[in-house]
Design a protein around this nucleic acid. Structure first.
Lengths: 350, 350
DNA sequence: TTTCAACACGAAAACGTTTGCGTACCCCAA
DNA sequence: TTGGGGTACGCAAACGTTTTCGTGTTGAAA
């Protein structure tokens, strides 16, 4: 078991100085052709690679991006990571992942672990608990320490940083428009409580769309689900809440669900109640994930293009890192990029 | 924008030496109570945290684990990551993720990027292409350099390292047994080509189970899908292959699918052909993911406990790292942990 | 023979830590 | 006054790089 070889060892072996070895390997003209060849051959033989940690320390940058997301077993978030990893790798960066599990404390701890030199910048989506408590000091602090952040999807405006978001309002409007144009007269929404920013925005889009079409927005058609019900253990509760919705509003002929799970659950309940999809009930969901594509009937859905979001976020962050490099007092103008959604029509609508 | 503060700056500010500051912060008795208080107060005020990179360089360990997986938009792999991250965090480690995209080259590149000091050890699942080419030199090389590897799920025996696997054979047998006990007489399997180790093993389990029950294994009931068809673009081809299976074997009354997608697609095709689930066709799949839980009918499935696999893998790796630490010539006895599967019964079987 | 440039290389600092060891100072006892 | 033992601190090395600057040797021009 031979440990990784270092410049020092090569130098000793070849009886030259460390600096000579370093320069030879980087093809410096300071070093004679002879020595260069000798050193390079030796280095190749022993498979020398510069130690990343040493380089990081010297260059005061790690070429590593920190990602903090609420969870990873989640179609949208994992597509975003895919996108981040793609451009990060292409541009010579690594990706280190921390999970907040939607918890404020874990988010803070994770950021502290990484902010002490391990990474050059963050890409993150805020935990629900943080959103609820509205305590964002950990974000401002890291930014103040000169570490850039790019937020995506779940963002908050008061933090000065680049952001990549989906136009949730517009996406929701597209969904509702699809239902309207399919002939729906009584469109219900199944959404989250308002502190989840994307839920709130999608609800707003729903309301705006109704208004556009001069349709009345009835409170009884708006079902706001408590967050916990997203976990698998509370599936029954979720089902009964939705069942309640249908039972007390017999005329519902369209459902806009703000995520896939709500959508498939709604369909399941609706079927149980004897409704036919899409004939007597049409459904549109948000997030074009596994369920939308492969459940039966497949779901008409608003696609968020998670990978694109990730790619854009990574580009924004790396751009900022690399412009800071040359221009110490870089412009502090932050960008908010909106990734367009699009409606993917499948079997759950006419 | 105040950059992160260092020992040197504190030392200068307080007019003491760097070593004094360092010792004071670590509560060394070498330092007077007075100085200690002073330094600690100052450090707290400026929110001092030791620079991780410097520590890594000094200690020659990074407290970071590298994960290489084929893809992340995948229920099983993301649950494994969740497990890894959980115990890694608990034990003071970070997690850095590389994706191979099932490509040999990307796997090699990713490992090289990380093996140069960025991490202390790997947890990985082998890319399909690597499995196909059977070129494992990058694994043996990193191991030879003293960097431990833990493999999970897709492993290969000839590599000397710890492994965490699912008993695919046994899991497959459980699945088939369930179908048999549900009265199925003609059980087909939808699996992958043999170079995917888990596909091969599950096929083997299927065959063994049939033998146990003295049922004839017919080649026509074994559908081996070419890998590409797993991607969304080839869904049609997948469907038509499965349709072919049903059409040329009208008597099929049970399907064992080695993953969720094959299972839901089989159900979709079966329905189109007028079969009722589970009355005239029962289905069992592998991997207890989103589709199994939420599609209609929900799927009876063999659960792999991905999170547990991740937790175990992380524990194995960290244990090895920390025993190596005290005992340079650590025992080179490698462990293969088998995580039991269990059958989760839902609506797709009787 | 002297001078000077070109060439080829080495010394050392720096990145931010930790830690073994040396040492200046003080106080007390002899 | 001398000696000795604490006490409280600083020096310097080490981790593995890169890079600036200095320097010894050579050969040729003057």
């Amino acid at each position: 078991m031979k440990r990784k070889i270092t410049l020092k060892q090569i130098a000793k072996e070849l009886d030259v100085s460390i600096s000579t070895v370093s320069k030879a390997l980087r093809n410096s003209i300071e070093i004679s052709e002879d020595t260069r060849q000798k050193v390079q051959a030796f280095a190749k033989l022993y498979n020398y690679r510069p130690n990343n940690i040493a380089l990081s320390l010297k260059n005061r940058k790690t070429k590593t991006i920190g990602i903090i997301i609420p969870e990873i077993v989640h179609y949208f978030f994992s597509t975003v990571i895919t996108g981040i990893e793609l451009v990060a790798n292409k541009r010579g960066y690594n990706v280190i992942v921390g999970l907040s599990n939607e918890s404020f404390d874990k988010e803070v701890i994770n950021m502290q672990m990484l902010a002490n030199g391990s990474i050059d910048g963050f890409i993150l989506s805020i935990a629900k608990e943080t959103l609820q408590q509205q305590d964002y000091h950990h974000f401002t602090e890291t930014i103040n320490q000169g570490m850039p952040i790019v937020m995506f999807d779940r963002v908050v405006n008061e933090i000065p940083c680049d952001k990549v978001i989906v136009d949730d309002i517009k996406g929701a409007k597209k969904a509702v428009e699809k239902l309207v144009s399919g002939g729906c007269k009584n469109i219900a929404i199944i959404t989250t409580k308002d502190y989840v920013s994307v839920g709130k925005l999608r609800t707003q889009g729903y309301l705006e769309a109704l208004e556009d079409y001069k349709m009345e927005a009835k409170a009884s058609l708006i079902l706001k689900i408590e967050d916990k019900l997203l976990s698998n253990h509370h599936l029954d509760e979720l089902e009964s809440e939705i069942e309640q919705l249908f039972k007390s509003n017999k005329s519902i002929d369209g459902i806009f669900a703000v995520n896939e799970l709500y959508a498939v659950t709604a369909i399941k309940v609706a079927r149980k109640l004897g409704l036919e999809i899409p004939k007597s009930l049409q459904v549109v969901s948000f997030t074009d994930g596994v369920l939308s594509k492969h459940s039966t009937p497949s779901l008409t859905t608003v696609s968020q293009h998670g990978q694109e979001i990730g790619e854009k976020a990574a580009d924004l962050l790396i751009n900022r890192l690399e412009i800071e490099e040359e221009d110490e007092e870089a412009e502090e103008i932050y960008e908010t990029v909106v990734i367009e959604t699009n409606l993917i029509e499948r079997e759950s609508t006419k």
